[in-house]
């Protein structure tokens, strides 16, 4: 036994890129918990959130992660997402907070009638309300730098003014592993522990660590309609069919999950993680393509959303 150990120590233990990414994310989360007054983890129930939550459990083990999960709900997520939400929070031993913008609720804002306003009110405005309501001063988000061009320049610790604005000209330089978490009262930080992960890294890690994700990522036969170039899933009876539309069973899966009336599926038979990864790698299109949100204003649209406080 001792002899084997001696041989091991002679040659360096090579960390893989996933091990280094994992260590970095854990380090980031621990820094926030050590320095922030009231951190929270934004939990969107998607695959990135699943990885982030898993990393949080690793970071603070054997303690449960010392902060709550916050889901900014739009009431229009897939049913399967709501199911996993409860289960994942329970498994992690964490408090789950759900925020639904009361104003959007009162006005009956929905993705069928209100288009961009739906995202703006439920998500962007809802997030601001929730952070203000609970007084959170640091919020973990699962955004990655490889998702979109304007995110490539996002800091890991991203500062927001008291009214949640992001000012790309006024972000703090981040050197080495040193994060400056100091802020004035009212200001807050969005923290992105997955900044340096790519989509492939996320999938590979889910595979390797056996992390539970929403079944909608896996192909199955589901009721769908095709509309404006997107395949939409008829997830519940609130889905408004247009004249002439009849739900058709297709074998589909989702590359990204959001509000079901806004999220396009892909036709697929990929039913296992390796299948999904293969499909992703062979796919000629990038990840966010299925989301209507990026298409609104060309390539500057995500940046505008960020300045307004969207994650």
């Amino acid at each position: 036994m001792n002899e084997t150990a001696g041989i091991e120590s002679a040659s360096a233990l090579r960390l893989t890129h996933l091990q280094r990414l994992e260590a970095e994310s854990i380090h980031i989360m621990r820094e926030v918990v050590a320095e922030a007054d009231r951190p929270v983890m934004l939990y969107s129930i998607g695959k990135d959130s699943a990885v982030m939550l898993h990393l949080a459990r690793k970071a603070f083990f054997p303690a449960p992660p010392p902060f709550p999960l916050l889901h900014v709900d739009t009431t229009w997520k897939f049913r399967a997402m709501y199911e996993l939400r409860e289960k994942a929070a329970r498994a992690a031993g964490m408090e789950l907070l759900v925020w639904r913008n009361p104003e959007a609720r009162a006005k009956g804002i929905n993705p069928f009638d209100h288009g961009a306003l739906h995202t703006d009110l439920w998500k962007t405005e809802g997030l601001r309300q929730a952070l203000d309501h609970y007084g959170f001063d640091a919020a973990f988000g699962g955004a990655r730098r490889d998702e979109e061009k304007s995110r490539a320049k996002e800091r890991i610790f991203s500062f927001r003014s008291a009214n949640h604005r992001w000012d790309p000209k006024n972000q703090r330089p981040e050197l080495w592993h040193l994060y400056n978490a100091r802020k004035a009262r009212g200001e807050s930080i969005r923290v992105f522990p997955l900044s340096n992960w790519t989509e492939l890294d996320i999938w590979q890690y889910i595979h390797l660590e056996n992390i539970e994700i929403v079944p909608l990522y896996f192909a199955a036969r589901r009721p769908t309609v095709e509309r404006d170039g997107l395949i939409l899933m008829v997830d519940d009876d609130r889905f408004r069919l247009r004249p002439g539309e009849v739900p058709v069973e297709r074998s589909i899966r989702f590359r990204t999950l959001g509000c079901y009336p806004l999220t396009g599926a892909v036709e697929s038979t990929a039913a296992t993680l390796p299948d999904i990864i293969r499909e992703m790698l062979l796919s000629p299109t990038s990840e966010r393509q299925g989301r209507a949100i990026d298409k609104e204003a060309g390539s500057g649209s995500m940046e505008k959303k960020k300045q307004e406080g969207y994650f």
Binding site: R14, L15, T16, H17, L18, R20, L200, Q204, L281
Partner: peptide, 11 residues
């Protein structure tokens, strides 16, 4: 096999 290979990449 592809995934195994990718998993062992360094950074």
């Amino acid at each position: 096999t592809y995934l195994d290979r990718h998993r062992d990449k360094s950074l």
